[in-house]
């Protein structure tokens, strides 16, 4: 495992989204949500994506990871030059893409430990040694202040909001992706849980050196995770890019000026 970490540090990867257009099939026909998204992320960079409700931030996260609900019209998402949009979700994960979900799904009867070991085995291509696995998992759980009993519980079943998000970060630490997308990782967290989750992301970033897309409504989490870039996402594409100072500006002015004239945010949703 130490070898794998060292490998990551020495390697540099690029994730490039080119003119991505995607949407969903509705009763009234196809509805385009992503209207030409362009973004390039390198290993070690943290990009915060901020924007109003319904602007398509979550759609971007799901489209990149291959949720069956979203259809790609055109464009590419190149991970080290390979277009992952043609791959199945599990193949994207094996290429090194990770999504921390806003609302992680419950899977009754499947224990966390069984699920995580299966996932790590599939992503690495071989089963981790049992002793090494047990110690690695219990260390990661300790750092995230997760109850040891949690390993025997069913995936996300009966977890509190904080537990669900900490479980996502645990998976991040064990799966060691090249690029991670965090979809509103700060939603439903109290101050302490937010700090633990943010610390986890920072630690994983430092150890495993991934590039990150941090989707959020609020600037609060950016006090703990310092982004290299802040992007404003509105009406299906990026409308402005800046440094960390842009987040402070958004806090002051809100998103209103980025919305198309005469449209409230709910009309876009």
């Amino acid at each position: 495992m130490a070898q794998a970490t060292a490998q990551h540090v020495s390697e540099s990867h690029t994730f490039e989204i080119r003119n991505l257009r995607a949407g969903v099939e509705t009763k009234r026909g196809f509805k385009e949500i992503l209207k030409g998204v362009n973004l390039t992320i390198h290993t070690g960079e943290i990009h915060a994506i901020m924007g109003p409700n319904g602007s398509g931030k979550s759609t971007l996260a799901y489209t990149l990871t291959g949720h069956p609900k979203y259809e790609v019209e055109s464009g590419q998402a190149l991970l080290d030059g390979v277009d992952i949009l043609k791959l199945k979700p599990y193949e994207r994960a094996r290429k090194g893409l990770f999504l921390s979900m806003q609302a992680p799904v419950e899977v009754p009867g499947v224990s966390m430990t069984n699920f995580m070991r299966t996932a790590v085995t599939e992503v690495q291509g071989h089963a981790p040694g049992l002793r090494q696995w047990v110690s690695e998992m219990s260390d990661a759980m300790k750092r995230l202040r997760i109850d040891p009993k949690f390993a025997q519980r069913s995936v996300n079943e009966g977890f509190s909001g904080g537990e669900k998000k900490r479980s996502e970060i645990l998976q991040l630490e064990l799966l060691k992706p090249k690029f991670a997308i965090f979809d509103e990782v700060d939603s439903g967290l109290d101050i302490d849980a937010l700090r633990i989750v943010a610390e986890g992301i920072n630690r994983a970033e430092k150890n495993d050196h991934f590039g990150a897309l941090l989707v959020t409504h609020y600037t609060r989490i950016l006090r703990y995770i310092h982004p290299d870039y802040v992007h404003v996402f509105a009406d299906g594409h990026f409308v402005r890019t800046g440094g960390p100072e842009l987040a402070d500006e958004l806090e002051e002015t809100g998103y209103d000026r980025y919305l198309p004239q005469g449209k409230s945010e709910s009309a876009l949703a």
């Binding site: 609900k69 199945k88 979700p89 994207r92 799904v105 996932a119 599939e122 995936v155």
Partner: peptide, 13 residues
Amino acid sequence: AEQLFYLESRGIP
């Protein structure tokens, strides 16, 4: 479908 996507997004075929 959501359960399956969650598992698949973790590399499980």
